[in-house]
Amino acid sequence: MFKTAQQLYFLCTENSCRSQMAEGFAKQLLPADWTIQSAGVEVHGLNPKAVQVMAEVGIDISAQQSTLIDPDYLQHCDLVVTLCGDARDRCPVTPPSVKKLHWPLPDPAQATGDEAAQLVVFRQVRDEIKTRIQQLV
């Protein structure tokens, strides 16, 4: 889909799980000349289970921080990927030149059951994010 240098933004409601995992994968899998960030329409901190499941595949996102959408960065993006309907619906308006993708992935932070069951959901979402990022180039 994209091959040359790009500015990419992953957006989610809280910027705590899905968008953070996407940022981590993108920084590892996409070309080094890409500028990649993630943000949310709210800030809720980095989910420890997201950190854990990413570490399982060799990606350390523990230093990433939950941040609010930066309107200036957003306006200069080549590609914006929303990972939940709330972020898609509440995302500020962007110029027509900004390509938008929507990946309607379940929120792993809403997973129920014991810790093992919750981690299964985190891993499923993590693996789906990896597959979609690999398809970007």
Rank of each mutant, 00 (worst) to 15 (best):
V57R: 10
P96H: 07
L83N: 01
V57D: 14
G113A: 04
A87Y: 00
V93L: 15
P104K: 10
Y73K: 07
D114E: 15
V53W: 05
V98F: 00
V98T: 09
D78N: 14
R88A: 10
L79R: 02
D107S: 08
E56L: 05
I69K: 01
V98P: 01
L68K: 07
L74P: 03
R90I: 08
G113L: 03
Y73P: 08
Q65I: 07
A55N: 15
P104F: 01
Q75L: 09
G113H: 12
V53P: 08
A87Q: 01
Q52H: 10
A109D: 06
L101R: 11
P95D: 06
H76P: 05
D107R: 10
V93M: 12
L74S: 07
S97F: 12
D114M: 07
W103C: 11
T94Q: 05
L79V: 06
D86Y: 14
D60Q: 08
A111Q: 13
D89G: 15
T82E: 01
P95K: 07
D78K: 05
K100G: 04
V80D: 00
Q75W: 05
L74E: 02
K100P: 09
K99D: 13
M54K: 03
Q110G: 07
R88I: 03
W103F: 13
P106F: 03
T112D: 13
P96S: 04
A55P: 11
C91G: 10
P96N: 11
G113M: 09
A63Q: 14
S66R: 07
P106R: 10
I59A: 06
A116D: 12
D86S: 12
P96F: 04
C77S: 04
D70W: 01
P104S: 06
L101V: 08
P104M: 04
T112E: 14
R90S: 14
P108V: 02
P95H: 09
I69C: 05
I69P: 00
R90P: 09
Q118L: 08
Q65L: 14
K100A: 06
I61Q: 02
A109G: 14
V93S: 12
A116M: 11
S62P: 10
A111K: 11
A63L: 13
